[in-house]
Amino acid sequence: MKALILTKSEGPGSVELQDIDRPTPGPGEVRVALRAASLNYRELWISRGQYPGMKLPSGLGADGAGVIDAVGAGVDSAQVGREVVLYPGQGWGDNPKYPGKNFALYGMPLPGTLAEYICVPVENALDKPASLSFEEAACLPTAGLTAWRALRVKANLAAGESVLITGIGGGVAVAACVFAVAMGGKVFVTSSVEEKIRRAEQLGAAGGVVYKQDKWGKALGKLAGGIDVVVDGAPASSLSQYVRCLNMGARVVIYGSTGGVDAQFSTPDLFLRHATLLGTAMGTPSDFRDMIAFVAQHRLRPVIDQRFPLARARDALLALESSHDMGKIVVSMS
C-alpha cells in the first residue's frame, strides 16, 4: 500500500510516499481502508524533529475516515463495510481530566492516516455522520476534538454567552466557531485580515477585530461588550489585549502557543473578575463520541481549505506551511 513516510527530520519537503506492507488487524482491531485524511500543524513540527520521542521512519497523519474492510480476532465480521471516522489516539487512560503517560496519537508514534490502510482498535472507529463526506469527516478528529473539549468540557459554554476565538482560520479556531454558534454562543473572532472575519461571519460569528491594529482589545470591548469564554491558540500575543474585556466568571481556554510561549498580563484583571485560566489538548474517547453525535445531530459541516490526492501529500504539507487560509487541508486516497 501507499503511505506517507518521514525518514529524516528535515522539514515537510523530506517526506516520501512509499510502498509498504498492508497491515493485518490484530485481536480487537479493525482495518480501515482510508478514504481521506486531514492535516494538522503537528505534522509540520514532526517533520522538523520538534516532537518528543521521535522515532524514524514513521508514518504521518492523525486524522482519518474510511471504510472497515477487515477485522481481527474477537471482532464481529458485521463490522466490515461500516463507514467510520477515527478517534486519533490510543491509551488516554481512566482519568477524564488528562491523558495518561501511555497516550499516543496516530502518525507518531503510532502508524499514520496518510496511507491507504490503517489498523485501529474497534472502539476507535465511530460511525461517520451520514451527512458528511469522507473528506469532511476526516477534518474532525484532532482539531474538532480540541475545539469541542475547550468549549464543552473545559469552558462549559452556555447558550447566550459571548465567545472570543483568536486567530480564526486554523482548524481548531474554525471548528470552535462552528461549534460555538451551534451551542448558542455569540461568537467574536480575531484575524490578521478583514476577509477572514467576514468568512467567520458567514459561519455565524457576530463580528471580529483585526489583531494587527494597535490596542485591538479596546476595539473588541466596544464590539462585544464583554466576553464570557475565550478559545485561544496564541496567548503570548493576545491574552494581554483581551483580558480586560472578560466578564465576571469568564473562562479562558488555551490550546496552543502560536507566536511564542510567554504571555504577559495583569493578574488582577483575572482574579478580580473571578476568571479561570484553563489549558486543554485533544480529548477523551467519550469527548469524541459526544462531538460526533453533536455534529450528526446539528448536521454541521467542517470547512475545507484545500484538497490534494495522496500522490501529492507532500504538496499538501507544503501548502499547510506556506499557503493555508481557512479551515482544513485534506488528502484524499481515492
Score class of each variant (00 low, 15 high):
63 D>T: 00
53 G>S: 02
72 G>R: 05
75 V>C: 02
68 I>R: 00
313 A>F: 10
128 K>R: 14
86 L>Y: 02
179 F>D: 06
72 G>E: 11
206 A>Y: 08
298 H>R: 15
270 L>V: 15
73 A>D: 15
274 H>V: 07
309 P>L: 04
332 S>L: 12
74 G>Y: 03
217 G>I: 11
26 G>I: 02
182 A>N: 02
112 G>S: 02
328 K>M: 06
298 H>N: 15
326 M>P: 00
121 P>N: 08
163 V>L: 11
292 I>N: 01
110 L>T: 06
176 A>L: 12
304 I>S: 05
59 G>W: 06
133 S>E: 08
232 D>E: 08
129 P>D: 10
85 V>W: 01
60 L>P: 13
52 P>Q: 06
237 S>E: 12
39 L>S: 02
233 G>K: 10
61 G>D: 10
183 M>V: 00
196 K>W: 12
334 S>R: 12
162 S>D: 12
68 I>T: 01
299 R>V: 14
235 P>S: 00
163 V>E: 13
311 A>E: 13
182 A>E: 08
119 C>R: 00
180 A>L: 07
48 R>I: 10
191 S>K: 04
225 G>R: 02
288 F>H: 08
315 D>T: 04
185 G>Q: 12
29 E>A: 09
177 C>K: 00
228 D>F: 14
229 V>K: 02
207 G>C: 15
219 A>N: 09
7 T>P: 00
221 G>K: 06
179 F>H: 01
167 G>H: 04
4 L>R: 04
68 I>Y: 03
329 I>T: 10
136 E>C: 08
53 G>T: 04
287 D>Y: 03
122 V>F: 03
195 E>M: 06
49 G>C: 09
219 A>S: 14
254 I>H: 00
247 N>M: 10
19 D>Q: 10
163 V>W: 06
234 A>L: 09
135 E>G: 13
119 C>E: 00
309 P>S: 01
244 R>C: 04
77 S>N: 09
312 R>H: 10
59 G>M: 14
221 G>C: 03
142 T>E: 02
283 G>W: 05
299 R>Q: 15
304 I>W: 07
229 V>L: 05
230 V>W: 00
120 V>R: 03
302 P>W: 11
164 L>H: 04
177 C>A: 12
278 L>E: 13
293 A>Y: 01
307 R>G: 05
54 M>A: 14
47 S>Y: 15
199 R>M: 08
16 E>N: 05
17 L>H: 13
35 R>S: 13
40 N>M: 07
30 V>D: 05
326 M>C: 00
144 G>C: 04
104 A>Q: 15
